[in-house]
Every structure is written in C-alpha cells, then in structure tokens.
Nucleic acid binder design. Structure first.
Lengths: 114, 114
DNA sequence: TATTTATACATAGGTTATCTATACATAGAT
DNA sequence: ATCTATGTATAGATAACCTATGTATAAATA
C-alpha cells in the first residue's frame, strides 16, 4: 500500500529522464526499462503510463513519431527543447526532495536534537 | 506542482518516525518539527496532518492522551506496539524506494547501459 | 485597546495522480 | 488451441493531500 503511493509525483520525472538518456522510446519500451532498472520494484501500468505520456505531450514536453512495425503501430516519444529544460528542473527538484525526506527520516539535521 | 505531489505516500512514515524518536508529540508540534527539519521545504498543513493522525489512530498505530494546558487542549500522540512495528516496516520500505528512484534517475543500475 | 500573530484542533470539499479493469489487435510459443 | 508477449488506449475507482474555513485561547505589538 505504501509502495504504491510512493511513485506519485515521481513518474513524469522518471519518464523524462529515460527519454533524455535514450533519445526516443515508445510506451511499452518505457515500462520494460522502468521494471528492469528498478529490479522489478516499480511496475508501471498502462493506465498510468499512457495518460502520463499524453500529459507530457499536451504540455509540449515531448513530441511523437508514429512508426508501423509490421502491422503494428509504435509511437515513439522524444523530448522537445522545452522538455529538456523541464527535465533538469524536475530532476533537481526530485533529488532535493529525496534528500529532504531522507533527512527527515534519518534525522540527519542536528538542529532538532535538543 | 511537483514538490506538492512528492509528499504523497511519505507523510505517515514521517509522522511515525518523529513519534518513535520523540516519544510523544501533539499535532502542532509535528508541523513545527517537520518544517524545522526540512529547513522550510516541507510545510505540513492542518488539512493534511490531522486526517493523517486520525488515520493512524484508526489503524491502531498510535494512541492519544488529552492534556489541558491552561484552557487549551492538547492531544498527545504516541506509538502503540503495533505502531513501532509498522514504523520499521515503512521506514525500510521508504528508504528502499528512495534508493530505487535515485537509481532510476541517476542511472546507477548498470544493467541498462547497453 | 485594537489588530496581528502564534498556538491548537477540526472537517468539508476540491484536485489529481495513479491504479484497476477493460478493450482491441498482432504474433510468437507451447 | 491457448497462453504469453507486444502495443496502445480509456473509463472509472481510489485515496492522499491541499485549500479554505471554522472555533478558540493567548501573546505581542502598534
């Protein structure tokens, strides 16, 4: 129940990061990459992924390229210039947040030890 | 917008951790502790905190002690035995998740560098 | 003495991201 | 034949968190 909720707010950043790194990916590709890299801990569902991709598209952070592979369609996504910028912003924000939470949990901030 | 969503799923763990450490705390106390420890980055609102505390109470993870201070009521919260157990579980889960996400973002998992 | 700020708890209602479940379709494996 | 993998899509449910509001005591400050 906890693990399920933790992904919230991090998904778009994960997708953007993968795209920045790989250049272009299609949806199914992303689900496998997330699964592999998280060692099976993060299982991205279609109901989460595709709406997320559509949001990124609507926000102008990614652009698409449709390709027919045999009789099957693939929709490749790649970052726009705006998307590249936003990726940096979100990655910094996310890493900073992870630090903050770790600090809260592990009590690395000495100011409260009184 | 990102930072606002990131807190989701982490709040109960933060509260439980604080209680485990401090022994007992009341609501307003918790908001200040979170603010201080996160250096102002996490501003816990009443509309988030009190429902969260009530959930923990309903789940039997905390118990309360009402104290009058002057004419004002304070409700102290402390962990139950079940709460102590659950705190460990959630902290481990959260730290593991933070590592996973960091790995995804920073690509520390070498298995995908092909 | 009037107003602001801090302390202290509470909840109704809104937002929204994610998940569940379902749908359609190609295609390889067993 | 049937299962599994590949590939995209959406309607509806869930639920956590926030906004806004309410009540009340009390200290500060103008």
């Amino acid at each position: 129940m906890l693990a399920k909720d933790l992904i919230k707010g991090t998904l778009s950043t994960i997708i953007l990061t993968l795209l920045k790194e790989q250049g272009r990916m299609y949806g199914y590709d992303i689900t496998r990459a997330v699964k592999e890299r998280s060692e099976g801990k993060v299982l991205l569902k279609e109901g989460s992924l595709y709406p997320a991709l559509h949001r990124l598209l609507a926000d102008g952070l990614v652009e698409t390229e449709e390709v027919m592979v045999g009789k099957r369609m693939r929709i490749y996504y790649r970052l726009t210039a705006k998307g590249v910028e936003q990726t940096s912003v979100q990655v910094n924000e996310l890493l900073s947040f992870l630090d903050t939470i770790q600090g809260l949990i592990l009590n690395q901030n000495p100011s409260w030890n009184g």
